[in-house]
C-alpha cells in the first residue's frame, strides 16, 4: 500500500513541464490533484517512471468569464470551483455536479482538469462537460490544440491527449439565451463513484428550443442521447404549460430507456445500471424543466 519508486519533478512553468514529458518518452504521468493517480500508485496499479507534478506551475488555476465562454484553468481545485461566484451565476450545472464529486477532502485537492484527463467512465465532470458542449485545450510540443468534449473521451481512462500533452484549460461556451439544466447521479454510498448519472441542458425562453442530454454509467464514456434531445428540444413545450411538461417527462423516460438500450454498453453493465441510467435521464429532464418553469 505504498507507492512504487518514481522520479519526481516540480516544474515551475508549463514549458518546463512539457519539456519533462517530452524527455521522459512516455513513462511519465502528470500529477494534478492526485486524488485518483496516487491511490492507483498506492495500490500498485500504476508504475510510472516519472511524475511531473503541476502543483507549482504558475497560471493554471483560474475561472474567467470572457462573455462568449467561461474559461477554467485545469489546475483549479474542485472545491474552489464549487464555491465560485462566477460559476454559481453562469454555470450552476457545473456547481451542482462538483458538489457530488467525492468528499470535501477530495475536492480540496482534486482539480477540474485532473478529473477530465483521468476520464473515469462515471466521473461527474466528463458527463457535465459533454452536456455543456465544452472544449478542452491541450498544450503540447507543437503548441495548443482545442478538442471538443465529444472527441476527448475515447474510452475508460482514455482520452485524446497525447503522452506529451497537458490539459491546460476547459472552455464552456455561453448559451445564446437562457439555459436551465440538471445533473443527477446515484451511488450506493454518498461520495462513491456513481453507478449511473445524467445531465440535461435545456435552452429557450418562452418555449424550449434545444436540449442536450447525456447519460453515463452503462457505456465506457458519457454518451449523448440524441433521441431524447430531439424529443425534448423539438417538442416546443411552453415554459408555463405544466401539463405538457409532465407528458413530455413521461415520454422522455420511455425514449431514454430505448436510447440507453441502444448505447454501446460495456460488458460489466448490468440491466439494473441501464435501467437506472434511463430513470436518471428522466429525472434530469424533469428537474431541468421544473427549474425553467420556475424561473
Amino acid at each position: 500500500m505504498k507507492p512504487p519508486p518514481f522520479r519526481y519533478h516540480t516544474p515551475r512553468s508549463l514549458s518546463e513541464a512539457l519539456d519533462l514529458l517530452r524527455e521522459s518518452s512516455g513513462d511519465a504521468r502528470v500529477l494534478a490533484g492526485g486524488q485518483s493517480l496516487v491511490p492507483l500508485l498506492n495500490l500498485r496499479l500504476a508504475y510510472p517512471e516519472v511524475l511531473v507534478d503541476l502543483n507549482q506551475v504558475q497560471g493554471l488555476s483560474y475561472i474567467r468569464d470572457d462573455g462568449a465562454r467561461l474559461r477554467i484553468g485545469a489546475m483549479t481545485r474542485q472545491r474552489e470551483a464549487e464555491f465560485s461566484v462566477v460559476l454559481a451565476e453562469r454555470c450552476p450545472l457545473l456547481v451542482e455536479a462538483l458538489a457530488q464529486v467525492g468528499h470535501p477532502a477530495i475536492r480540496n485537492r482534486g482539480t477540474v482538469g485532473g478529473s477530465l484527463a483521468h476520464a473515469d467512465p462515471v466521473a461527474e465532470l466528463p458527463c457535465v462537460m459533454t452536456a455543456l458542449n465544452a472544449e478542452l485545450v491541450a498544450a503540447g510540443p507543437e503548441g495548443e490544440r482545442v478538442i471538443a468534449a465529444s472527441d476527448f473521451f475515447l474510452g475508460p481512462y482514455e482520452t485524446a491527449l497525447d503522452a506529451r500533452e497537458i490539459l491546460v484549460e476547459v472552455r464552456i461556451p455561453s448559451a445564446p439565451g437562457p439555459r436551465h439544466a440538471s445533473f443527477v447521479e446515484f451511488s450506493r454510498r454518498h461520495g462513491d463513484f456513481a453507478l449511473a448519472e445524467a445531465a440535461a441542458v435545456l435552452e429557450g425562453d418562452g418555449s424550449c428550443t434545444g436540449a442536450r442530454v447525456v447519460a453515463a454509467g452503462p457505456a465506457w464514456i458519457p454518451c449523448r442521447l440524441e433521441a431524447v434531445e430531439r424529443l425534448v428540444g423539438g417538442a416546443g413545450v411552453a415554459r408555463t404549460d405544466g401539463a405538457a411538461q409532465r407528458d413530455l417527462v413521461e415520454e422522455a423516460g420511455r425514449t431514454a430507456e430505448a436510447a440507453v438500450a441502444a448505447l454501446p454498453t460495456h460488458a460489466d453493465a448490468t440491466p439494473y445500471q441501464r435501467r437506472l441510467a434511463a430513470v436518471l435521464v428522466k429525472r434530469a429532464v424533469a428537474q431541468a424543466l421544473e427549474r425553467w418553469s420556475r424561473n
Binding site: G34, V38, N42, A105, R109
Partner: peptide, 24 residues
Amino acid sequence: CEHGVCGACSVLMDGQVVRSCILF
C-alpha cells in the same frame, strides 16, 4: 486504507482538510 477512502489520515493543510495518505 492508504488509498484515500477511509479518511482516518485526514489533516488540515493550509487550513483545508486533505487526506495525507494520498499526498506526498
